[in-house]
Design a protein around this nucleic acid. Structure first.
Lengths: 97, 97
DNA sequence: TGACAATATTCCAAAAATGGAATACTATAA
DNA sequence: TTATAGTATTCCATTTTTGGAATATTGTCA
């Protein structure tokens, strides 16, 4: 029961434990984007971006919306920003030591 | 430069992407603990706990302090709680849908 | 010094993640 | 209906992670 919760949280962190996926999250913080925009912005192969988006979606971090040929993705959580700021502090203090 | 930052953040998330390590973080939120206390509480093999602690330490999430035979570990970051609460909300909303 | 308790390290096989390449699917427009 | 643009899926080899088992290291005390 409780260990299952740790499993699920671990899944969320796993979805975030990849630089490409973090870059996508960062870009989506700017607002909803379609796959083609993300591909163009991040300069990775389209299948790679698609797989990354699906992983983030499965973790419950982003959601999608279809419109014609395009699929638009956007962030589903709001607490990312604060935690990312905190991580930045950690990384700063490490680079000093 | 910037991509390197994503790499480092991904490393932190990777350290958090494991249920045992999350359980350790949770236990340490209660205050500083020695390895033997963590082993007893979490009921895993001592080498496994040791390796988990080292991974968390390398990610900059916890710190250690030696005292005689014992090594005491404690959290190095304070922003974990808020983010964890946010994750709980995500997991709750998912379990409803 | 020798024995022991607490912790860390190494070794290893199985499982999972990674990312490239090719291909499939789907909605639209001609 | 066919061609095409946008997106998703599958396949695969390589790398990384995982966790158990054995062993090494380190500090303390008699």
């Amino acid at each position: 029961m409780k260990s299952n919760l740790y499993e699920k949280k671990a899944q969320i962190f796993k979805a975030l434990s990849n630089p490409v996926r973090l870059e996508i999250i960062d870009f989506l913080a700017d607002g909803e984007k379609c796959v083609c925009e993300i591909v163009e912005k991040l300069n990775y192969e389209q299948p790679h971006i698609s797989k990354s988006l699906i992983k983030l979606k499965e973790a419950g971090l982003i959601k999608d919306r279809k419109e014609g040929l395009n699929v638009y993705y956007s962030l589903k959580i709001c607490c990312m920003g604060e935690f990312f700021n905190c991580l930045n502090k950690i990384l700063e203090s490490e680079s000093k030591s």
